[in-house]
Amino acid sequence: MIFNIPFIAVAALILIGLYAVIFKRNLIKMVIGITLIESGVNLFLITLGYREGSIAPIYTSSPGGIMALPVPQALTLTSIVIGVAVLALMLSLVIHIYRHYGTLDVRKIGGPEE
């Protein structure tokens, strides 16, 4: 069980991100939380594909031996680029919200008093 430390780190990352998304009121902090969740998912995929004592799945001058699983690594590569694109989109929307409402507090944006 103690060897599951990478999975525990994944759970901690995702939970910290979820905490920021649920309990924080600042939009920038919520964006940081979403990015933390995304980092946790990336770490989870990489951790799933690791084999004990394996090398990277690249044949160029490789020392030999068993190789790590290539498919989770490829999907993580895709996920990182998607994360950057979505982060840029979220930040630009946050900038527009700030210019329109003058605040970043979610309780004051579109609240009941309007």
Binding site: Y59, T60, S61, S62, G64
Partner: peptide
């Protein structure tokens, strides 16, 4: 097609 296994680039 490169030779199978570890090799030069």
């Amino acid at each position: 097609v490169p030779a199978a296994g570890s090799g030069l680039a």
